[in-house]
Amino acid sequence: MTSRLWQLGFASRFFIAIFLYSGTSFRRFQLTLREVFFSGVMSLIIIMVSGLFVGMVLGLQGYDTLQRYGSAEALGILVALSLVRELGPVVAALLFASRAGSAITAEIGLMKATEQLSAMEMMAVNPIARVVAPRFWGGVISMPLLAALFSAMGIFGGYLVGVVLIGVDEGSFWSQMQATVDFREDIVNGIIKSFVFGVIVSWVAVFEGYDAEPTAEGVSGATTRTVVTSSLAILAADFVLTALMFRGV
């Protein structure tokens, strides 16, 4: 218990240190852009394909339920709200933690194990500024963009199943979605959620990498912890954010 508390304290100080040493990430923005490429662009395929299938499943399940009440035209609303409010940010963040978070942890952990971080320190270059902060901000920037793409692909998947395959009226599908989805209430809240999840995943990933035992077993354990910890933290944070954003709506 004491060691857990100690580690939480260390992680919190590490989080503050990332902000203190973030100057380089913005002054030399190409360092951060490179990480946006590795975390964000390289995650595009898994995010877009998953988004498409989740949207298609929503289309099937949603139609099956709605048509019992004669409300099949509301399929567009169901698909869009489910994705924009919940599934987009949450599932994209879970996938991001598995795909990019684990890669960030493994990379930093291996840099530590092979003394690359020590070498950097001995060259008077702060590894938190040069290695950790760009990866953190790369993840934070990528996450909302990936969640938006996930939702867009999901809505397209819902359209394919609902309109093209089952034959729901196309006008109803889009117009009801347009009339009901609120920019401030739904889309902005979804973006806020995905931003928070981006901070959580990136923080956990860089911390676990930096704190990893510099051995093969240590890096492997740190990578697993990144996926488990960030997934649980995403789901817990989602409940808190949903309670704050949508209560009474």
Binding site: L110, M111, T114, E115, Q116, A119, E121, M122, M123, A124
Partner: peptide, 16 residues
Amino acid sequence: MRRRMGMLFQFGALFT
């Protein structure tokens, strides 16, 4: 001070 020091690590520690 470290800017005026060089260090060669056991296995090189090159940035991969």
